[in-house]
Design a protein around this nucleic acid. Sequence first.
DNA 1: GAGTGGTCTAGACCACCGT
DNA 2: CGGTGGTCTAGACCACTCA
Lengths: 253, 253
Amino acid sequence: MSRDDRMKPEPVPDRSLHRRIRADLEERILSGAWSPGHRIPFEHELMTQYGCARMTVNRVLSGLVEAGLIERRRRAGSFVRRPVGQSAVLRIPDVKGEVLGRGETYRYELLSATRRKATRADHARIAVAVGAPVLALACRHFADERPHAYEDRLIALDSVPEAASADFAAELPGTWLLAHVPWHEAEHEITAAPADAKTAARLDVPAGTACLVIERRTWRSGAPITAVRLWYPGDRQKLVARFTPSTAAGPGR
Amino acid sequence: MSRDDRMKPEPVPDRSLHRRIRADLEERILSGAWSPGHRIPFEHELMTQYGCARMTVNRVLSGLVEAGLIERRRRAGSFVRRPVGQSAVLRIPDVKGEVLGRGETYRYELLSATRRKATRADHARIAVAVGAPVLALACRHFADERPHAYEDRLIALDSVPEAASADFAAELPGTWLLAHVPWHEAEHEITAAPADAKTAARLDVPAGTACLVIERRTWRSGAPITAVRLWYPGDRQKLVARFTPSTAAGPGR
DNA sequence: GAGTGGTCTAGACCACCGT
DNA sequence: CGGTGGTCTAGACCACTCA
């Protein structure tokens, strides 16, 4: 209404209208112009401002809710949320890709592959039934011919029986699993630990070296798939996580 | 059409219709019933299946795109995406909340607060102009009266001049900043490192102890706000990240 | 009671792209 | 060319909640 001609969707002036509205509102929130607690305009006000239907602004505002930037209360209005504590989107690196990405040569070595029955320790690690068949793998990742990471992996064969016949000397277990088990839920646990003698030897560092240890457990439809523990000498590996409010975890979702 | 009575939105049968459709589709994708590359039904097919308007299924499918679960191509259809490598939503714990959450007592101690001009090292750390005023803080967090974390923080006073007069002996710097600098972008860097002699003494652990080190840099509208480095004895702290495809980073967004 | 957001409809026009 | 998704409209009814 207030703008020139908004009857035709315009051949993407910058982007679509709802994207421009979204960007506008995000900018105001991120810059602090609208600080936490601020009540942002009602849908019908934004409707008038942008000369569009309510559905359009509603879609934008719903998106902001999902992104955790605002919260909405009936009868009251929409409000800028207080920054969500500290959450971040972390990229857990794919070892091979990460090494190659730094321009170093990559090599992978399978140290051992053992098929056995799950122990009590295995159960504690990944909740696979004690006695169920598992495949235990140990391998090393090299960057420029220096040991870069040591990988200790368990695969639940009940969930992924095909893994028993896969050739993990030729193919990376992680890659193979990703290709054979489409979607999954995962949990990552990140700690620092001193390398024990055996691990230190495998990584070619002094025993006790501070290592970054990433343990990843993977399920599919609740069934355990794999657990993998990656040891990186601390000075060799960094994890980087970026936080922007729009990537932050939403409210309760 | 195929369902009983879909004229009235029904008083939330389970949830709203679009949520149920969303859950249905997610389930099929997550379970692997629709594996990567699978073409999911066209909008008009879903429309018929659920007896709703195209706008409704479109909203669901757009959401799945944003969540990174599917990709859509005009004329071709919508397809299940290959799992995104390894990304996860990580909760960087608020030290105080995390300690209290475990039922331990929490105490905070400010060791030093120094106002000075930014050095070259400060610039490298947080890109504050050399010579600009900064506030350097050192503090300790105690859990059950044992040192739990050592915090080394830098605040750019050009960006947050009020920080100069804040009483950081009484209030946690992180909390204070969160309340005074509404939204921000942040970057986290997670590494493992052996504790140097000074840090080890502050944490009351032997020198060389493997520590989890989290460095967080925060900006607001591109201007540096603060950088904080947290040292946790490795056996004392774990970071946990959960990955579910719907929280995974989307395609290009 | 009145005003807000939550949801949904039944259309519509367009851009794009594969055949 | 035809069919797909991308976007938008102008309504509508409802639930909730505050005054």
